[in-house]
Simulated assay, not measured.
Amino acid sequence: MSARDRILAKLRAARPAEPNALPDLDAHYTPRVRGESKAERLARFRTGIESFHAEVHISSEADWPALLARLCADKKVATMLYGADTPAGRRLDQATFPATTLRPWAGQVEDLKADLFHRVDAGFTQTRGAIAETGTLMLWSSEAEPRTLSLVPPIHFALLDAATIQPTFFDVLRTENWAAGLPTNALLISGPSKTADIQQTLAYGAHGPKELVVIVINAEGDAQ
């Protein structure tokens, strides 16, 4: 008998007669979030993402563009790139941003590369939701709002609806029905970019945004 045959024989002998039963994921995850309110879910998310050096600001549906303008002015953002053909992008008016030039996304990455890496100070995106357990944002890129907006500029501003915060990643998979289809690229973001590759020293912004700023809307109330 060859070495290969001996190894395969051992594997076959160790194989259980009956396959192990799949775990009951609902039974596992439900006790961890039972009775959790929207406010509690937001608090968990905020604690998680702020621990990864992100900023979180609470605003309203009516006032978030003005808050974004103030944040841009405070951070001396000269140019912000955004997806103009999105629900949030259509809310942005240059008149509200006297200190910042709003630049709609247009063209291909190859044509914008020099500006993206050298002249754009911030990118603004919507979010699809968030995960409270890990303090993570979810973004689904699209032609109108490509992933480049959140991955390249030094500052990433993200708009999050508190009603879309899910307790766990399992709840995201089930509620969003990811099994039925995913976008070409789904982004999970838990803070600004960071690396410890160089001399094991943690550095922010080495491969992407140095700052992540989250504006949360619809945080009022205690609905589930």
Results as ranks from 00 to 15, higher is better:
S2E: 09
S2N: 15
R6Y: 01
I7S: 04
L8G: 03
K10I: 06
L11P: 04
R12C: 02
E18S: 13
P19C: 09
P19M: 08
P23C: 11
Y29A: 04
T30P: 00
P31C: 13
V33R: 14
R34T: 14
E40R: 11
R44I: 07
F45R: 06
R46D: 01
T47W: 03
A54D: 02
E55D: 15
H57F: 15
S59Y: 09
S59V: 07
S59C: 11
S60I: 09
E61W: 03
W64A: 07
W64R: 10
P65A: 08
A66T: 10
L67K: 12
A69C: 12
R70Y: 03
C72Q: 04
A73K: 11
D74A: 15
K75T: 09
K76Y: 04
V77Y: 03
T79G: 00
M80Q: 06
L81D: 04
Y82P: 03
G83Q: 05
A84K: 14
T86D: 07
P87W: 03
P87L: 03
R91I: 00
Q94C: 02
A95Q: 11
A95R: 12
T96M: 12
P98M: 08
A99E: 13
T100I: 06
T101P: 00
L102N: 05
R103M: 12
R103F: 02
P104C: 06
P104N: 05
D111I: 00
L112M: 11
A114P: 00
A114N: 08
D115A: 13
L116T: 02
L116M: 13
D121M: 00
A122Y: 01
A122P: 02
T125F: 01
T125K: 04
R128P: 00
A130F: 01
A132M: 04
G135T: 03
G135K: 01
M138E: 01
M138H: 02
M138N: 01
L139T: 00
L139Q: 02
W140A: 06
S142T: 12
S142I: 07
E143L: 12
A144Y: 00
E145G: 05
T148D: 08
L149P: 08
S150P: 10
P153F: 08
P154I: 03
L159V: 10
L160M: 12
L160A: 09
A163W: 02
A163N: 13
T164Q: 13
T164H: 10
Q166V: 05
P167Y: 02
P167A: 12
T168S: 15
T168M: 04
F169G: 04
D171G: 05
R174D: 10
R174W: 04
T175Y: 01
E176S: 08
E176F: 12
N177R: 15
A180I: 06
G181L: 09
G181T: 10
L182K: 10
P183C: 10
P183M: 10
T184D: 14
N185F: 12
A186V: 13
A186M: 15
L187H: 08
S190Y: 07
P192Y: 03
S193T: 15
S193K: 09
S193W: 10
Q199H: 14
Q199Y: 08
Q200I: 11
L202R: 11
A206K: 06
G208Y: 10
P209I: 07
P209N: 09
E211R: 14
E211F: 03
L212G: 03
L212K: 04
L212M: 08
V213M: 01
V214C: 04
V214M: 05
N218G: 07
D222S: 11
D222N: 13
